[in-house]
Design a protein around this nucleic acid. Structure first.
Lengths: 352, 352
DNA sequence: TCTGGCACTCACACTCAACGAGTGCCAGGG
DNA sequence: CCCTGGCACTCGTTGAGTGTGAGTGCCAGA
């Protein structure tokens, strides 16, 4: 395995660190391999190019930088970026105007879907890369209300209100016709017994009481609970990753072979790989960064992914992030992702 | 303006037409400019390359073919494709297995959203290009049922059922609190008076009766109707164009500069241009084809768009289509789009 | 009217040399 | 001991030059 960055950072002289930092910054800015000459001018150290070359050779031995070919400058490796991010980076706080704009676009009066889409849009707009948001889990959504509406014959519209605002409905095809009164009665029963619980609890409750109540009622109640589970949990496997601004990725020279773009966009379509990546961050405390191959997914070899979980009521409910070329302005991107996650969480939270 | 294709087709000799057809077919197949030699071999006419060159020169004068440079073969121009499509094309009926697959994936038991997405997917899968579906207009959707559900305080959940299956709900913030009974009463009133009408009629009706009924009821009723209009008409301006398989466009050499792809994908994101294009087809009878610049949108200069409207109950309610490079296999694409439109219409129609 | 022949064009691929940015290494100086 | 200037070397990039081949236009003859 790779050496831990802290160890490496300690092994590095102050000078080497300064140079690595200058190199990364220069490369991130210009996208050109950085030579000793340039570095001598920009690094602030009063050293000749030759001395710098010596240090660079050391950095190369450590696997922190590499040269695309003999007579080009150096570029950071994944490991180099990693050390830079972990030890050398000074994050710039986000522009206050941008923070204000973010707040304005993530307000508690929006519904979940709009919030999530807005967050994704904002992420991509601020970072000029692709934004993505894992929609909030609803495991612990509290059932507020259940109603049944008779449509025609055996068709019944079930309406579930969760968390007092989120509504889901589904048409149920029942085995027999129920009267308006019966439906009302069942809704009442369910509301009385289940209000406030989350869906899992509700389901268990219904199963437990199954024998005590008349059979046909159980069927409908179960159907309702199952509907609830389907409506609120099923779509976690499905349309639960919202992207925005993939198009920005077409602007980066290092990704701009159609081949690479195709693979990336395929990954966006499939979602699976990105889902597993994001889900692996859901237990992390704050911002997580995957540089190049670190993500473990081949399509992302030339990309970095910056993620942050967001939480409602102290409980992490989702993850958001951006995806861009490894050569990204980490010091800007990291706080952007961080703040967006906080604001999204706050907006979700302060809706009552 | 350009000469009408029929005129041109008449001006062309039988030989010229055969040659144009062979040329288009060859170019669509191989993507290479076609030379007189190749054409002599493949066209079936027993002519020497030299004779063919003469005819080709005529075709070039008419603007039907052009050569990318002096010593390359000819490729069809937009006008050439147009004439080919209008006069020379023999559409191949779709493979019966494909038709069966289509039918299986567009069944009446799916809801509108699923049907539309499925149709879009299928279009892109069959044609290997980007599929798009304009979601059905709901202008004439018949109101089946309206219900109000009290959430908390002045928040009321309005539920509208249209066409007996399509459900929309929205949370209304009212100016004062209404009792459960009041809400019930209003719902009853609305159901009695408005059931079966479309939203426009419903709204007029409510406005007309406004003076006859108590004020506070009117407010809520109007709110409900407005909600209905918003829910069912508003989102026509919004998320009403469903794409699939844009990624296929990355496989075509003639579009595979990142520049062009970027513009195309931008157009997909913006939707606006494509919406106006599709909407212009909604009055057309059957399949419409826009070749190259014919669409009038610069981004689509290198693309062709094949569209077909689909209808429910004899009334056209939407348009679907595919986007691909001008060099597409029209004889396969056209029937594919046509049949998909028919089947989508049929599936939407036979749901009751 | 069709055909073979011929001169011509032009994109493409290939080679070659000049260039220059950058490197590694070494010897001399603070 | 570390830093520095110098020097030879590497190697990608650029541009000019060249050959090749597919294809054309035109013309004279059948």
């Amino acid at each position: 395995m790779k050496t831990s960055p802290t160890t490496q950072s300690q092994a590095l002289s102050e000078r080497a660190r300064l140079l690595l930092r200058a190199l990364v910054e220069s490369y991130v800015r210009d996208g050109q391999p950085v030579g000793s000459r340039t570095l001598a001018r920009t690094a602030g150290l009063d050293l000749s190019p030759a001395s710098i070359r010596n240090v660079m050779a050391d950095l190369e031995d450590l696997g922190l930088v590499s040269s695309p070919h003999t007579s080009a400058g150096r570029i950071p490796t994944s490991l180099g970026y990693r050390l830079f991010v972990d030890c050398l980076l000074e994050v710039k706080p986000l522009d206050s105007a941008e923070v204000r704009a973010l707040k304005q676009r993530l307000t508690p009066d929006m519904d979940t879907k709009a919030l999530v889409e807005s967050a994704s849009d904002l992420l991509s707009a601020i970072t000029q890369m692709a934004g993505m948001v894992r929609v909030p889990r609803r495991d612990h959504a509290a059932l507020s209300q259940i109603e049944f509406l008779k449509l025609s014959g055996r068709q019944v519209l079930a309406i579930l209100v969760m968390n007092k605002r989120e509504v889901q409905n589904r048409i149920l095809e029942l085995e027999r016709e129920y009267s308006h009164a019966e439906l009302q009665q069942m809704a009442n029963y369910l509301n009385q017994h289940l209000a406030g619980r989350d869906l899992r609890q509700a389901r268990e409750q219904v199963l437990k009481e199954m024998k005590a109540v008349r059979e046909h009622m159980n069927t409908l109640m179960l159907a309702a609970i199952e509907l609830g589970e389907k409506a609120f949990c099923d779509d976690e496997g499905g349309d639960d990753l919202v992207f925005a601004g993939q198009i920005h990725l077409m602007d980066y020279a290092e990704l701009s072979s159609v081949e690479k773009l195709r693979n990336l966009f395929e990954a966006f379509n499939e979602k699976r790989q990105l889902l597993t990546l994001l889900d692996s961050c859901i237990s992390a405390e704050g911002v997580q960064i995957f540089i190049g191959q670190e993500s473990g997914h081949q399509v992302l070899d030339d990309c970095s992914v910056v993620t942050a979980p967001y939480s409602v009521g102290g409980r992490i409910v989702g993850v958001l992030g951006v995806i861009g070329p490894t050569r990204m302005a980490y010091e800007r991107i990291i706080p952007a992702v961080d703040i967006t996650a906080r604001l999204l969480g706050a907006a979700l939270n302060s809706r009552n």
